[in-house]
């Protein structure tokens, strides 16, 4: 057998494994989510690193990209660059202030909207399992963090999990059931620890807390005290 014969055998007979429809769809969804998250970064960033730092970073990002000469002369861009910088600083400061003030309230609205949407049009969960051994690995590769999953909360049964876009970022959501009530628990990395807090939106109750590593937002139509009990059990279970 010579090299050409071997090559012919391989090209004609070796199995080829194209990506499945499911994988194509998953990657397209993932790209769309990541892309949306990136485009919103300028306005979402301030709460993470502080207004001044993020304005600097934002300007660096945008001016850095704009500074690549696109056919125009060097002098040209210094002029436009200066004007642009002034404009962008104004816009960035406005965005920073706005998002600082509006964030917690808007976040609660978005979480209720996400919960309602999942209840109405679904899916409430993309991976269906009452075991954290099934749910936790499912998030692998779908998120850039690993959310904790608890399946042993007395009175609250784990239904499964899903990834939902929250403020443009793919976010882990765990679905639980207690009696006739559904609870959605949104989990994403936290900037710092925070004591539990209870909110109400459009008849839904929200309990949120943070353990320093992750922040948790539980939303449900169940009675507020019951939802707090869910939060307390989660914290006890996670500890």
């Amino acid at each position: 057998m010579n090299d050409d014969e071997l090559s012919r055998l391989l090209r004609e007979h070796a199995s080829r494994h194209p990506a499945s429809e499911r994988l194509h769809a998953a990657v397209r969804t993932q790209t769309a989510l990541q892309s949306a998250a990136r485009e919103r970064k300028p306005s979402a960033a301030p709460s993470r690193v502080g207004a001044i730092g993020s304005v600097k970073a934002w300007l660096r990002r945008h001016l850095g990209a704009g500074a690549v000469p696109v056919g125009s002369g060097r002098l040209g861009w210094i002029g436009t660059g200066g004007v642009l910088a002034g404009l962008m600083l104004g816009v960035a400061l406005t965005l920073a202030v706005q998002s600082w003030q509006a964030r917690p309230a808007e976040l609660a609205d978005d979480i209720v909207a996400g919960h309602v949407r999942a209840l109405q049009v679904g899916p409430l969960f993309e991976v269906s399992s009452s075991s954290h051994h099934q749910v936790r690995p499912w998030f692998q590769g779908r998120l850039d963090y690993a959310p904790p999953v608890l399946d042993n909360l007395p009175g609250f049964a784990l239904l499964g999990g899903r990834v939902q876009s929250l403020r443009g970022k793919p976010t882990a959501v765990l679905a639980y059931q207690a009696g006739l009530h559904k609870i959605d628990l949104f989990v994403w990395p936290a900037e710092r620890g925070a004591a539990p807090e209870r909110l109400q939106r459009r008849g839904f109750n929200i309990v949120h807390w943070s353990d320093g590593a992750m922040q948790y937002w539980a939303v449900s139509d169940m009675e507020g005290g019951e939802l707090e009990r869910f939060g307390a059990q989660w914290r006890a279970g996670a500890g």
Partner: peptide
């Protein structure tokens, strides 16, 4: 064209090769 669209156009045609 957004970054996501450019990524789809340039990289995702090679997803079959990637999976293979």
């Amino acid at each position: 064209m957004s970054e996501g669209q450019r990524f789809e156009a340039r990289v995702l045609p090679h997803l079959d090769a990637a999976h293979n």
